[in-house]
């Protein structure tokens, strides 16, 4: 019973990490940029869902003892994801695009700047008080729904990347931006699309996680973002199946450490595993080993 429950816990947590990790990995794939602000976009997604739920009257409905309809929940997700997709495009346009030809560390610092801006701006606008997130999904099938939704989103993403024209363009940009541009691909549009896609997934993860652990505050993206980033690196950054694998592994590893009775070492073990894996496979689990050309 305990072990089954812990496996389910790990799977749920892991699929949320995986959803966030996908955003890191996609942006890295096309831009070689660690988008430090991604965790905070995840936070904005949670707030987006929160405000959407109040605006649609779902929050007061649930407070009165009712439950939300499927359409309403879908609408909340859609609003949150759309808002974050726009925010992602906005961030890319103004903070990263002007620096595309600069050294990568430069855009990393702007990414950190954007991250701080969202965190402290969030504390100024939303106040640091935690807010209760409405229980959009009934507790009985909460974990199943989260894993199912996450899985559906991941499959959807894989389809977009492998089966559509825009997905092919994304892969081309990832392979060689200059060459892709010469082949007539509008790289700016493709990169913006990648940000939108990643941010929408982060928003979905933010809303799912807020239903699962029902409080939100402006700093909730810091640790989640960091761990998802670790998950992306673990799987091999820039690699979509790798991010999913890394996320799930991270979720299971953390749960396993707690189940074994070492909950106070949880964060250390997560990073310890990462270091070990990277020492054995320096490019992550599914990352291709770098062939050095001279």
């Amino acid at each position: 019973m305990d072990i089954t429950q812990q496996l389910i816990n790990g799977l749920t947590q892991g699929s949320i990490y995986a959803l966030i990790a996908l955003g890191y990995t996609m942006v890295y794939g096309v831009l070689r940029l660690i988008n430090f602000a991604h965790g905070d976009v995840y936070m904005l997604g949670a707030y987006g869902g929160f405000f959407a739920a109040s605006a649609l009257g779902v929050t007061s409905l649930i407070d009165k003892g009712g439950s939300a309809g499927i359409l309403q929940v879908a609408a909340i997700f859609a609003i949150g994801m759309l808002a974050c997709a726009l925010i992602g495009i906005f961030i890319e346009r103004f903070a990263y695009r002007p620096l595309r030809s600069s050294p990568r560390l430069t855009s990393l610092i702007t990414a950190i700047g954007v991250s701080m801006l969202l965190e402290f701006g969030g504390q100024a606008v939303f106040t640091p008080e935690p807010r209760p997130f409405p229980a959009l999904i009934d507790n009985r099938f909460l974990q199943v729904t989260i894993v199912g939704t996450a899985l559906a989103l991941m499959v959807g993403l894989q389809l977009i990347v492998t089966r559509t024209r825009v997905g092919r363009a994304m892969r081309a940009v990832s392979l060689d931006r200059a060459a892709a541009s010469l082949m007539g691909i509008n790289t700016d549009v493709i990169i913006a699309f990648t940000f939108a896609l990643g941010s929408a997934l982060a928003a979905a993860a933010g809303i799912l996680n807020s239903i699962y652990t029902p409080t939100i505050d402006p700093l909730l993206g810091v640790m989640a973002g960091l761990k998802a980033f670790v998950a992306a690196v673990l799987g091999g950054i820039g690699n979509i199946p790798g991010a999913v694998l890394g996320g799930l592994l991270m979720g299971f590893a953390e749960t396993a450490v707690v189940a074994a009775g070492y909950s106070s070492y949880r964060d250390a073990v997560a990073f310890g595993i990462l270091i070990l894996v990277l020492l054995l496979r320096p490019s992550g689990l599914l990352g291709r080993v770098a062939a050095e050309k001279v």
């Binding site: 620096l99 610092i109 702007t110 700047g113 701080m116 801006l117 402290f120 701006g121 504390q123 100024a124």
Partner: peptide
Amino acid sequence: ALRFVIYALILIVLMLLRPQ
């Protein structure tokens, strides 16, 4: 909070205008 918001803005603007 404003203190760190402005700090962050300075980072972004400086990096955009003087990447090196």
